[in-house]
Nucleic acid binder design. Structure first.
Length: 645
DNA sequence: GCTCAGTCAGTCTT
DNA sequence: CAAGACTGACTGAG
């Protein structure tokens, strides 16, 4: 498959082989009407808008969204090919029941957006039976609260003592606030959860109704057969705590529960045919569908465990055998039902690719970056016979033609180790409003106008946790060809929400205006002044944690000037990221110094947990002006605006 | 730098 | 209500 690295220098291959690739980006240069206009302005379609902007929102086109169903699966990867379960969306009923009951359940009289949002979404109906939107909402809310609790704990500012387990605390907060879904237990798929979805905490699976135990590996459902009540197994988690056999992608040999010594001074014991084990035995005879969740190590951080929903299995056999401790252990053989999208199987394939035991179909180049990145970037085309993308120079950094003067430069901290969360003597932390912007594992806590990172000029250690975006690519990326959207970007590694993905590298240009009319249309423009739809809030909700709503107006006054970047001739993997109206990635401005001058960077972070081989997309936003170049959006999401650009 | 085993506080369901 | 289910972040040895 490997055909050597793709040419990075012009002239090394015949020009006939440099294909004119279909534009990935359909951004068009735009005029900034007012120098005073805040560049980071975001707004709902109803405004308000700042002076100098004329917003254009083609939201009305939802009903005639040009997204054909047959687009599902065309790219042949997990992200776009997953099938929505045959849902009982019951939209009409949901609306009427929800609006009638919501006010009864929640008589909170807060006028804030979260409470309104919360009442609409977390109505009794959507708590019992979910959908994709509800599942994503619950997961985003959980992680935002968890990140905030983690941030507060690390700064040792926790108001009610220490929070050793922010995941459990966040789970507790959401449970008591009723932010959960699919509470009605069921066999089969909880609506809104998709095969291949990944989870970083047991609580996440509990909150979306995938697995209803905060610790237990076997979840059961009590059923009635005539007068007899009995429990069936509905989902299991294979976590590595017992000796399960997880070698086969379609078969799982699962151990029953119990018998493991809880502490060092306790003895192992024989497992008993009771509780979960009994339920599994009944499910063997009932042959009901059992959800299987496979826990495994995060390949890019082995101290982190990830749970992968691998779809429905049925139990084919059970037996009793002697475990390593010499005690009896129940074993259950589960076989995956055919016709489901691949999930765990992808993880096995990726392992083999990484180990060099096999290659993905259509591999054109081992490293698109030609050594520029610390980790290789694969180039794959398994949809047609064409070659690599058109020529560009791979650069990992943003190139400024002139310095970018920022009025609020602070020129670094004086910390001499790693900067410590909660240390208000650190000027970099003070620049971030006192909150350390990143929590454990380097996840961004909140979106904000600008994140201030420590710089190479700061005396703190290079491993200071406030340099997340400067450490280079950490994820194994793949640039791959789609059938309808040109080239696209995805990761072989799973990505946790809030994780750093990459910077938008390229050349800073004065204004996209220069390109107009020259016939040199630039489809690789990134412009911070484009309007984003922020209806899906990513940040944590202060009212859930009884916190005051912070006043960010002061911070907004210091928003830097618009930043326009072209990645047409120079760029990194970010130039291959496509637009989506329901994206899994967002961008964030990050500022740090170099040679005593401050520079802005556009940095991408994961909005949700992203399974391997899922296309990475972000919202390109809307030009403030009506332009001729608005393009049909091919994102395929339910809330697709129809057009973008 | 990396992996592994050990430690321990922690929360839901039955 | 107590028992039982096992996690996740961290620490220190190898």
């Amino acid at each position: 498959m490997e055909q050597g690295s793709i040419p990075m220098e012009q002239g090394s291959i015949p020009s006939s082989k440099v294909l004119s690739v279909k534009p990935l980006r359909t951004l068009r240069p735009l005029f900034v009407s007012s120098a005073q206009a805040p560049p980071l302005f975001t707004s709902s379609p109803s405004g308000p808008f700042p002076p100098g902007f004329t917003p254009f929102y083609p939201f009305c086109s939802n009903a005639q969204s040009p997204q054909p169903d047959q687009m599902d699966g065309v790219t042949g990867h997990a992200g776009s090919s997953r099938k929505r379960p045959p849902g009982k969306l019951r939209k009409v009923a949901k609306k009427s029941v929800g609006s009638r009951n919501a006010g009864v359940s929640f008589t909170v009289n807060h006028g804030n957006a979260f409470v309104r949002n919360f009442i609409v979404r977390c109505n009794p109906f959507s708590k019992e039976d979910g959908n994709r939107e509800m599942v994503e909402y619950v997961l985003m809310t959980f992680d935002a609260v968890r990140r905030r609790l983690s941030q507060v704990e690390e700064a040792k500012e926790a108001p009610n003592g220490s929070i050793k387990r922010p995941d459990l605390k966040a789970g507790n907060v959401l449970m008591s606030a009723g932010v959960r879904t699919n509470m009605r237990k069921r066999t089969g798929v909880p609506p809104g959860v998709e095969v291949g979805d990944i989870f970083f905490f047991r609580f996440e699976m509990l909150l979306v109704g995938l697995h209803g135990q905060s610790m237990g590996g076997i979840d059961t459902l009590i059923t009635r057969r005539g007068k007899v009540e009995e429990s069936l197994a509905v989902s299991i988690v294979s976590s590595g705590y017992y000796d399960d056999d997880t070698e086969d992608k379609d078969v799982l040999i699962y151990s029953g529960q119990g018998g493991n010594p809880i502490s060092k001074d306790k003895q192992a014991s024989d497992q008993k045919l009771e509780k979960g084990n009994l339920a599994l035995e009944r499910s063997l005879h009932q042959a009901n569908e059992v959800r299987v969740i496979r826990g495994m190590k995060d390949p890019s951080n082995t101290s982190v465990k990830i749970y992968v929903y691998d779809g429905l299995y049925t139990i084919k056999e059970s037996w009793l055998e002697k475990g390593k401790s010499g005690c009896s252990v129940f074993k259950y053989k589960l076989v995956r039902l055919p016709g489901q999208p691949s999930a765990f199987a992808d993880w096995i394939s990726i392992q083999k690719w990484k180990a060099g035991l096999s290659s993905p179909v259509g591999l054109l180049s081992q490293d698109l970056s030609a050594g520029a990145e610390k980790i290789t970037v694969s180039l794959v085309n398994d949809v047609d016979a064409r070659g690599p993308p058109s020529y560009f120079t791979y650069s990992t950094v943003l190139r400024y033609s002139k310095s970018f003067n920022l009025t609020n430069s602070s020129f670094g901290c004086n910390c001499h180790k790693a900067c410590q969360p909660g240390d208000l003597n650190c000027s970099c932390i003070r620049s971030n409003g006192g909150d350390f912007p990143y929590a454990t594992n380097g996840v961004l806590v909140n979106q904000k106008p600008v994140v201030h990172e420590c710089s190479p000029t700061c005396p703190c250690f290079p491993n200071c946790k406030n340099r997340v975006s400067q450490t280079g690519l950490k994820l194994k990326m793949e640039v791959y060809k789609t059938t309808d959207k040109g080239w696209a970007l995805r990761s072989w590694d799973p990505i946790r929400a809030g994780s750093f993905i990459c910077e938008f590298a390229g050349e800073v240009v004065d204004s996209p205006m220069g390109m107009q009319g020259t016939g040199q249309e630039d489809d690789y423009i990134f412009d911070t002044s484009r309007i984003l739809d922020k209806s899906n809030k990513w940040n944590y909700e202060p009212t859930l944690l009884n916190e005051e709503i912070p006043d960010e107006s002061a911070e907004n006054d210091n928003i830097p000037s618009p930043l326009v970047i072209s990645a047409k001739n120079v760029g990194n993997v970010a130039r291959f990221m496509n637009h989506s109206c329901n994206p899994n990635v967002f961008w964030q401005l990050v500022q740090y110094e170099h040679n005593r001058e401050s520079f802005l960077h556009v940095v991408f972070f994961a909005k949700k947990h992203i399974p391997p081989l899922t296309e990475l997309t972000y919202d390109y936003g809307m030009s403030q002006f009506e332009t001729r170049s608005k393009r049909k959006c091919l994102c395929g999401s339910e809330k697709c605006r129809g057009y973008f650009g």
